[in-house]
Amino acid sequence: MSLRVLVGVKRVVDYAVKVRVRPDHKWVVTDGVKHSMNPFDEIAVEEAVRLKEKKIVSEIVAVSCGPPQSQETLRTALAMGADKAIHVEVPAKDAELLSPIHVAGIIAKIAKDEKIDLVILGKQAIDDDSNQTGQMVAGLLNWPQATFASEIVQADGGLKVTREIDGGLEVIQVKLPAVITTDLRLNQPRYATLPNIMKAKKKPIDKKSPADLGVDTKPRLEVVSVDEPPVRQAGAKVANVEELVQKLKEAGRI
């Protein structure tokens, strides 16, 4: 087989950063905060590269929708082994209003234009945790989907995918073209080394806008409020059983 694969990569706030809610309660603070590739997308890129090393895949196209800085994320994908990249540029202001339906529309359109056989996406991004884009892409293209993949092998002209489901694993056979979303245990992504990042600068990045692809990115959802999780209340020590019983009575627990 020589499949053409599309992988989606999202630029998100780095996993190690302690996120803070923005004062207007519409999103989290992103200015001056370290960003990196969504870890689940890293797993998707790694899987595509491994399939290429097994000669199942012939070309890997990485796609990212986001602000100009998303190019850095695409460079990382290229350094890991993607062959070319498409950057769908959305101004930073609009990028945070971009929701899965828009991204899915963009990815579906590119998948058709580029004659893609397999779309591999991270199951969710670690910033908005939507877990919708892969499913929506499959819906828009009317392709089979294998979500939460923890193993992918070639079988019977298609792919045999092991899925992580509640309380166990499910093995399904999908025909191509198909959409796969990756789970944490699929693989261990390689580290993009410095020489590879340098080499990646020579690989092509195509720039497009959502309008070029005929996708309307008008927000369909409104963020009502983003808040911190409630803080755990401080406990208290008691000297003896009587005091404990009394405190519990006061609190109305007994």
């Binding site: 996993y15 190690a16 870890p39 670690i126 944490l184 261990q188 992504p189 580290y191």
Partner: peptide
Amino acid sequence: IEALYMLRKYRSLKKSYY
């Protein structure tokens, strides 16, 4: 160091999502 970074990321994801 590569192994350290990988493990750190894996553990933190596992902790937050599983």
